[in-house]
């Protein structure tokens, strides 16, 4: 029997490894991307424990924008829109314009209204809501033959699963999660990795390790 990491695609082959997947300890992690054991799915079999219906239905309603508001983008959306165009300018080697778009992005980040009652549990349920929505977004993209939107779903779902997995681990392990180690973000796709050094290649989008950025500890006031 083979088990596949839903984040990076690593295959745990029981025949080759010698240890049955079930016998691995609960805190066993994907050797490639360090996803949790629960992020593995048996090969080519529908994943029964993956549906998580109780969190799904309740939370998707909280994060939708009315469709009539399509033209009017929120501050949060405009922040991402502008920082995305800043990246576009960087890729075209237009430094000045990249800086101007970053300035606009910073402005929108600043005026984004606070979310009431922000806490880790609520964040966990929003992440789960997104994970549940990817299948239908992907179906829509495939029906329209929109390769770009389909790719957003492939990377986005993997990264979102990783975030969800890390938040779940934090809720379980607490402060020991990052004790004595570092946390890195892939600046190309957003994949988050815990370890002393970043992976040689991003397990999700395959960029080299120098594209990873380390998150620094809070500066002492």
């Amino acid at each position: 029997m083979k088990y596949i990491c839903s984040i990076c695609g690593y295959i745990y082959d029981e025949a080759a490894e010698g240890t049955p997947f079930e016998a691995l300890p609960a805190d066993w992690k994907c050797p490639l991307c360090k996803a949790a054991k629960t992020d593995f799915k048996p090969e080519a079999a529908p994943a029964p424990e993956d549906t998580a219906p109780q969190t799904a239905t309740a939370d998707t309603a909280t994060n939708t924008v009315p469709e009539a508001d399509l033209k009017k983008l929120s501050a949060g959306q405009l922040a991402a829109l502008c920082s995305n165009l800043a990246r576009g300018c960087e890729k075209m080697y237009k430094e000045e314009e990249a800086g101007l778009f970053r300035e606009l992005a910073a402005y929108f980040t600043k005026i984004t209204p606070a979310i009431p009652d922000a806490d880790v549990e609520k964040l966990a349920s929003l992440l789960q809501g997104d994970i549940n929505s990817y299948d239908s977004i992907r179906a829509q993209a495939d029906a329209l033959k929109d390769r770009g939107a389909a790719r957003v779903c492939v990377w986005g779902e993997k990264v979102t699963r990783m975030l969800s997995s890390l938040v779940t681990r934090y809720l379980h392990d607490g402060e020991s999660l990052l004790a004595g180690t570092d946390i890195w973000v892939c600046t190309a796709c957003g994949f988050v990795y815990i370890g002393e050094t970043p992976p040689e290649l991003c397990p999700v989008c395959k960029v080299p390790d120098w594209k990873f950025e380390k998150i620094e500890r809070r500066a002492k006031a």
């Binding site: 949060g76 959306q77 922040a79 991402a80 829109l81 920082s83 995305n84 990246r87 964040l123 957003v152 990377w155 986005g156 990264v159 979102t160 975030l163 890390l166 938040v167 934090y170 999660l177 990052l178 946390i183 890195w184 973000v185 892939c186 600046t187 190309a188 796709c189 957003g190 994949f191 988050v192 950025e213 998150i215 620094e216 500890r217 809070r218």
Partner: peptide, 18 residues
């Protein structure tokens, strides 16, 4: 640090979507 990492990741995801 976890929340800072997540915030950065979410921004990258949102940028990609936009």
């Amino acid at each position: 640090r976890l929340m800072k990492a997540i915030a950065k990741s979410e921004r990258i995801l949102a940028e990609d979507v936009m």
